[in-house]
Amino acid sequence: MEIVNANCATLSNYEVLKHLQKIKDSKKKHKGQLATITYETIRYLENTACSEQTPENIKECLNALAPFNLNKTEKLMIINSPPTTALDIQLMIEESEERLSEQQAEQILEIITRYFPHVMKEKVEQEEEATE
Rank of each mutant, 00 (worst) to 15 (best):
E56I: 02
K59R: 13
L11E: 07
V4F: 05
E52A: 10
L76S: 08
K123P: 00
E128K: 14
H19Y: 14
E97M: 10
Q21H: 04
N80D: 15
V124K: 11
A86K: 15
Q103C: 00
M77I: 03
Q53L: 04
Q33S: 03
N5P: 04
C61A: 06
A6W: 15
L65Y: 14
E106V: 02
K72N: 14
C8S: 07
E125S: 06
I111A: 06
D88H: 15
H19V: 09
N7V: 09
E46H: 09
N63A: 13
V16C: 06
N69Y: 10
T36A: 05
E98C: 03
P82V: 00
S96C: 08
T131H: 11
L20N: 12
C50K: 07
E102R: 04
H19E: 12
Q90S: 10
T73N: 12
I58V: 11
E95H: 05
I89S: 04
T38C: 06
I112Q: 04
T36V: 10
C50W: 03
K29E: 12
A35Q: 11
K18V: 01
N5M: 11
Q33Y: 09
I37H: 05
H118K: 12
K22Q: 15
I89R: 07
K59G: 00
A35D: 13
I93K: 11
K59H: 10
P55N: 07
K121T: 15
P117Q: 01
N5L: 09
T85S: 13
L91G: 12
M1W: 14
E102H: 06
E122M: 05
Q90I: 02
L109K: 09
N5E: 15
G32N: 07
R43D: 15
M120R: 14
K31R: 10
P117R: 03
I108E: 02
V16S: 07
E60R: 03
K22S: 12
R114P: 00
K22M: 13
E102K: 08
N47H: 13
T73K: 14
I112C: 05
V16A: 07
K22A: 07
G32Q: 04
V16R: 15
Q21G: 02
A64K: 14
H118F: 08
E40K: 06
E98W: 08
E56M: 01
